[in-house]
């Protein structure tokens, strides 16, 4: 079964649907025209570019090019995680890269080589969207993990110091905040697995069904992706926090204030 095309006049009609919320917002006195316009325009341009890029990537299906695409995604994610977590890029860029790269590569390779087993493990049609989805979720988890951990540590700096004074090692003293941060990072994934299919139909499954897949096949892929997201988010958060502990403290286990982006101080 082929998916029905949306032709240009119908696309125009689709944009027309936005007039309804726009009118309502205007009526209740919310002047959001500029934001809505920019949002819709950016979405359209960005997706068009991705469309062109993906089309080329799929047509060429070159392992190096696919690898390069994943590398670019990892680097963008690395910077984005640190910026959003309020940590200085120059201190943590390598640690975060190692954490996300190792966990994404492990879970994607596992999925491609052992589970899906396409003719070529680097097949762009599989590896690019799957790695992208896993990375997107892994990014969220890492932002939460780092942000929670370092804000808890700063908030409880006296408690942390008290633990050190009572004979704790650095690891023993940070462990309560470490556990809480990892829990906060992976909780959304666990919750979304627990309600999957009840509250909403997952995006990838819907996409596959619209693309003509059998529901059963779409379900299996959805389970595969969720397990990979859970695995890589957990691994990356733990590795990232662990590596960051070596950077964020001096040799006397005192937290180094300078690793925090000043404008993000809460």
């Amino acid at each position: 079964m082929e998916t029905l095309d949306i032709k240009l006049p119908q696309m125009a009609l689709l944009y027309g649907l936005c007039l309804l919320p726009w009118l309502l917002l205007w009526l209740i006195g919310l002047r959001l025209s500029r934001d809505i316009g920019v949002g819709i325009l950016r979405m359209s341009i960005q997706l068009a570019l991705v469309g062109i890029y993906l089309k080329t990537l799929f047509d060429l299906n070159n392992p190096w090019l696919n690898g390069l695409w994943i590398l670019v995604m990892l680097i963008v994610a690395d910077f984005s995680i640190l910026r959003r977590a309020g940590l200085k890029v120059r201190y943590f860029v390598l640690a975060t890269f190692i954490a996300i790269a190792s966990s994404i590569l492990l879970s994607t390779a596992y999925l491609m080589i052992l589970v899906i087993q396409p003719a070529h493990f680097y097949d762009a049609r599989y590896i690019v969207p799957l790695a992208g989805m896993i990375l997107g979720n892994c990014l969220q988890a890492n932002v939460i993990a780092l942000e929670r951990f370092y804000s808890a540590l700063r908030k409880n700096e006296n408690e942390y110091t008290t633990f050190l004074m009572l004979g704790a090692t650095r690891w023993e003293a940070v462990r309560p905040y470490f556990r809480e941060a990892v829990k906060a990072a992976i909780n959304p994934t666990i919750a979304s697995m627990a309600t999957m299919g009840l509250v909403s139909l997952p995006g990838m499954m819907t996409g596959q069904i619209l693309g003509g897949s059998e529901p059963w096949l779409a379900v299996k892929y959805q389970i595969a992706i969720m397990i990979c997201i859970f695995t890589s988010s957990t691994l990356a958060s733990i590795i990232n926090l662990k590596l960051s502990l070596k950077i964020a403290f001096n040799a006397f286990d005192v937290f180094r204030d300078e690793v925090i982006e000043k404008k993000n101080i809460r």
Binding site: E159, T162, F163, L164, M165, L166
Partner: peptide, 17 residues
């Protein structure tokens, strides 16, 4: 670490943790 473990620091409002 050995200095810290031999020493008790008690402040105005100690943190019990």
């Amino acid at each position: 670490q050995s200095i810290r473990s031999c020493t008790a620091y008690i402040g105005q409002e100690p943190i019990l943790g």
